[in-house]
């Protein structure tokens, strides 16, 4: 059974993440004596930033090893879902297999927590899906 319609652009706009400034009608009225309204802080901004940083860090650290290519592709798709900038320099010190498993498990825990605690429901859906997606990957399936 499909869920309600959801798009990546719609998600981040509704979460207030892609919009740096909220322009009100008053902002466009030169005769208005009132100062431009300040956008209210996005309660999920910190979570989105942390989530993007988590995925970028994984991409950088995993990207140096060909055996992680499929996993890096997964994290790039997940980062794109959050409209994060893709890292291009993969200079991170390669992780051992055990360290890779530990980092992926940590990511699952973090995305699960962020999904449970963020304000925006559609953002929660994406964060929860990312946590589930990481759990599906072979690197964690063979490490139980």
């Amino acid at each position: 059974m499909p869920g309600s319609p959801l798009s990546r652009r719609g998600l981040l706009l509704s979460a207030g993440v892609a919009t740096t400034y909220a322009v009100s009608g008053c902002d466009l009225d030169p005769t208005s004596p009132e100062p431009a309204a300040q956008p209210s802080p996005d309660p999920d901004q910190a979570i989105v930033s942390s989530a993007r940083a988590e995925l970028s860090g994984l991409i950088v650290r995993l990207g140096g090893s060909p055996r992680n290519a499929a996993l890096v592709t997964v994290h790039r798709v997940q980062l794109a879902a959050l409209q994060g900038d893709q890292p291009t320099a993969l200079h991170g010190r390669p992780l051992t297999p055990a360290a890779t498993v530990a980092r992926e498990r940590r990511a699952v825990d973090r995305f699960t927590r962020w999904a449970a605690t963020c304000e925006n429901g559609d953002l929660a859906r994406v964060l929860g899906s990312i946590a589930a997606g990481i759990r599906m990957q072979p690197v964690l399936r063979g490490s139980a």
């Binding site: 499909p2 990546r8 997940q78 794109a80």
Partner: peptide
């Protein structure tokens, strides 16, 4: 198969 974004619409990350 393992997916990057289970439960989300296909192509969500590129729409």
């Amino acid at each position: 198969p393992p997916q990057a974004l289970p439960g989300l619409p296909p192509g969500f990350a590129t729409d």
